[in-house]
Amino acid sequence: MSGKVLEINDLHMVYSGGVHAVRGISFNVNEGESVAIIGSSGSGKSTVLRCINRLIEPTGGEIYLKGEQVNTPHTDINNLRSRIGMVFQSFELFAHLKVLDNVTLGLRQVRKMSKREAEEQALAVLERVDMLDRIDAYPGNLSGGQKQRVAIARALAMKPEVLLFDEPTSALDPELIGSVLKTIRGLADEGMTMVVVTHEISFARDVADRVIYMDQGVVAETGPSSIIDNPETERLKKFLSSINEEN
């Protein structure tokens, strides 16, 4: 594990309504590392993730991508975003484009590739997520799991330096979660740097190199994935037990 890909220092986010969602969070993500952020809803997990590629403008703190500061007005944010892949909870595929075009759009428009080049690269990524057989389908005709895999392919096609997953499985039926998790696990095994916000505790335990537990906008506990089995703080214990009750 070499070099920090992401560095987050004292991140604050106050929404315009006055909600202080993130209150000074700092963590690093190293090359090839997969970090899982867990926590109850409203704890600020997704806000942190969205701050990283500035879909939300953080109100304080610094974010660096490979040493380059993300949150200054002077950064070329479009270029930076193209280096940070993002997968959304509800997929957000472009409904009017076929699967293949969803994946090639960024390559054509941002990377300025030729149609042939873009399609080659897209097909390679779609093969990785096992969606080669549906490249001509519209998103509306795909199942949730398929959609999410296409969304992963769309992010992956840009060859990002880090992939952000915003609760990638929480909008899926339980039987469809498996295929998506398998895909993400495969990416982790290949050494993709990832930050995963998730409710899948078992997934966090199995895949993540490191787990960050957030509560009320701060990091309540952090450590290797083993902390899920042996939580140190009361808050994490309580959180884990409440989840186990649900299951």
Binding site: L55, G85, M86, F88, F94, G106, Q109, V110
Partner: peptide, 30 residues
């Protein structure tokens, strides 16, 4: 059009106008 479509477009590095033209408008016109 859900604002997340704009976010999705921006997150792969499209500019605001590119996202409008390639993602939002084609759906909005329909």
């Amino acid at each position: 059009i859900p604002s997340a479509q704009m976010e999705a477009g921006r997150s792969i590095g499209l500019t605001y106008l590119q996202t409008m033209r390639r993602v939002i408008m084609p759906q909005a016109i329909r």
